[in-house]
Write a protein that binds this DNA or RNA. Structure first.
Lengths: 190, 190
DNA sequence: CTACAATCGGAACGATGATTCCGGTTCGAT
DNA sequence: ATCGAACCGGAATCATCGTTCCGATTGTAG
């Protein structure tokens, strides 16, 4: 994913994985504001080591988020095979919100997306967009979701719910309640 | 509000107003991240001048937000006199979201509230909480809103909608649509 | 008109964080 | 076992911001 030249030396590869692992945990738990030095320290490495592998803090962050984003895209695609169209759609929304609830950085990632970040992330967002759109349309045909909403709105609301859950009570129960209310708004009422 | 000793010198007062005006516009348009120096520059003043009047960046921000927050609280209280309980409640939500849509800083203000900021803002948030709760309960009694939600959830969802609107399309129409969907979720379905 | 207290501007300071640099160390092909 | 390339650590550097300081300026009471 990052090693395209030739395989890294054994110790280098070991450290790269270690950095990813630690950074993932730290960013998820405390958000993007954590200093790079802190991550290096927790990984038991010098900052220089970290910077040779990830040329920028943002690059490191991307490498982490891309994995999770890809997983979501895969799930969304998988959802198209489910029997109940409505259920599949709402389950996907739940997954997205859940991701944001556990990984604080994810919210920042999706939020700051419109403006900057790497093209790879932008591409992934488009894929998620497309996959979710398929689910949405199927759910609409099944009359499980009102017809007058589009994917953009659904994504916006979902992210809004993530943001809302972030402060409210961060626990899973509260998150589900907020999401449930939002979903009721999306159900066929028209 | 800030001048409790004796009246400021004419030029000082003029500059104080100028700072508030500029800061209001800049914070609203670009959020809290704007450097103090930038605000001073746009106001045509030195940073020192600004700091004598507002001892801290946070103090300046508060001075600005408090006004808007107070206005919302007043409106919420006023709403209790309206005939249609449901309408009054939803109108209030719309007002809150609208405020957040126009003034980006407002979101930060409501969001970061739990942790730090001045007691005056915290107090105002409590007042808003209470006033909105009254509206909510009245709306629930009128069967315009489902019974199984509390103010905390409503506020969380409302802020989520503000956040959602912030990126989606910032225009009023899109904002209203998102809010409408959320409100449908709040209506009596039970 | 004068004097002085308040005000002004903006350079200087301190803190925080990202990024760069380079002398010393370690792999791994030969 | 040897040697050079690749790697490592972390001090030093650069940039950004909030905040403080102080000599110069200006409003205004008397």
């Amino acid at each position: 994913m990052t090693a395209r030249g030739r395989p890294l030396r054994a110790d280098a590869e070991r450290n790269r994985l270690r950095v990813l692992e630690v950074a993932q945990a730290v960013f998820a738990a405390e958000g993007l504001a954590v200093p790079i030095d802190e991550i290096a320290r927790r990984a038991g490495l010098g900052v220089g080591t970290l910077y040779r592998r990830f040329p920028t803090k943002e690059a490191l962050f991307e490498a982490i988020v891309i994995g999770r984003m890809q997983a979501l895209v895969d799930e969304a695609r998988e959802g198209r095979k489910a029997k109940d169209a409505g259920e599949a759609f709402f389950a996907m929304l739940s997954r997205i919100v859940e991701e944001g609830g556990v990984k604080k950085d994810f919210i920042d990632a999706l939020a700051g997306m419109g403006s900057d970040v790497a093209r790879e992330l932008v591409a992934l967002k488009k894929e998620l967009h497309a996959a979710l759109e398929a689910l949405l349309k199927r759910a609409q045909r099944a009359k499980a979701v009102r017809r007058d909403v589009d994917v953009r709105e659904v994504l916006a609301l979902t992210m809004g719910t993530m943001a809302a859950a972030k402060q409210h009570g961060v626990d899973a129960r509260g998150r589900e309640r907020l999401l449930a209310i939002m979903c009721d708004g999306l159900r066929a009422t028209v």
